[in-house]
Design a protein around this nucleic acid. Structure first.
Lengths: 224, 224
DNA sequence: ACCTGAACACCGTTCAAGT
DNA sequence: ACCTGAACACCGTTCAAGT
């Protein structure tokens, strides 16, 4: 932290970039504007992301996708260190684990809606994502599935959660062609009562699990 | 078609733009490059899209999203004209209609994978999209649903199809963080046989319909 | 190691002008 | 009506230089 060090770090840069994206939109995220927000010359960012904006985008996607909050006091480090996990409680039932993941992942996607276009052309192969998928496989096995049905169910789960978040963002977007009637109004005309996004997401999640396992889940509601 | 008219039209511009997107990626779609591909100065595009690139993007999204092929011989026109539909065959069963739409929509999204980031922040309120949704509502009613469950099922269907296509594109993308293990390999380790994307999509679609309606659909397979 | 400042090629868009 | 050509503000990135 000498005088001419602006205290930049990859994490601080990513968080400031996300603040710009969430506040002004992805197209307004500019290296120069990012530098301004960090109170630094734009070119300073290149010292932390030598491959430029594309590498910054990769880091943003990883940040949005992965739940893992970093310990803030530590120096930024590229290597994954194994951390001892002292907790030894019995894991929740399989449907609770799936429900919990679904709500958390959806919330993360919705919180950074402006960054979602970046996700589409980047592999979701982060360690955290793979750990989640391993747990989905285990959960559907506990639900009684076996063989290819396990992978089918896990893939469908991920597709649904991802698609539901993106569909919601889409329908809330300002842009659009000439709009004679909106999706919501069509649904209101069709159904009796309108359902809000949260309830609809849960209804679809439960139906999906029921369709794959034959069991109507009982522990998938969002936490209070 | 006088000598100094290059024969430009909104449709021709959109199709050329999509060719660039599909071939080189969205980031390489540039007004100047687009002009080159059309053998015209870049600024000629602004005569057909006075609001600039954003309006061009809107048109691209509409083109990708809507199935409706335009009659090629007609002059480009903004107004929707009512066309008499002489066909009077009985409509297919509800599950066949849903399956047909799901496969077609997915195919359109996969065909123009490079343009998908544009979809996320644009309302899906085109006339064709609304017509599809009306038919989904009708189909789920025919399957026995009523009340809010109808809208829940229709919304879940759209979320799943959209999410499955995007998830596939994502997993096929070159980009990514350090990749110790890919999703496919994880699934292969978990399940016995690997399922390809098409079969997995159909399995998830059937399970979703089963979960919402209680009926395992029999007519959702892709056409040969 | 970390940041600055000038420079370069390229971009979206405006505007006056041509036909 | 349809397209051109020059111009302007802005962008991502390189590179040599500072400390």
């Amino acid at each position: 932290m000498s005088r001419n060090s602006a205290g930049l770090s990859r994490q601080r840069i990513v968080e400031e970039a996300l603040r710009i994206i969430d506040g002004q939109g992805l197209r307004r995220l500019t290296m120069r504007r990012l530098g301004d927000a960090l109170e630094v010359e734009a070119m300073a960012v290149y010292h932390h992301f030598p491959l430029g904006k594309e590498q910054l985008f990769d880091a943003i996607v990883e940040y949005v996708t992965d739940a893992t909050p970093r310990r803030p006091a530590e120096v930024d480090d590229d290597e994954e260190e194994l951390v001892e996990e002292p907790a030894e409680e019995p894991p929740p039932p399989w449907d609770a684990r799936i429900g919990r993941w679904a709500h958390e992942y959806r919330a993360r996607l919705l919180r950074h809606a402006g960054a979602l276009p970046l996700l589409i052309h980047r592999r979701p192969d982060t360690p955290a994502a793979l750990r989640s998928r391993e747990d989905h496989v285990a959960a559907f096995r506990e639900a009684g599935l076996s063989g290819p049905a396990v992978a089918d169910a896990a893939a469908a789960l991920e597709s649904y959660v991802f698609g539901a978040a993106l569909t919601q963002v889409r329908s809330e977007s300002p842009h659009g062609a000439a709009e004679p009637e909106t999706l919501e109004r069509l649904f209101q005309r069709a159904g009796d009562a309108a359902t809000d996004f949260d309830s609809r997401f849960l209804a679809g999640l439960d139906a999906l699990i029921l369709g794959h396992t034959g069991v109507r889940p009982a522990h998938t509601a969002a936490p209070a």
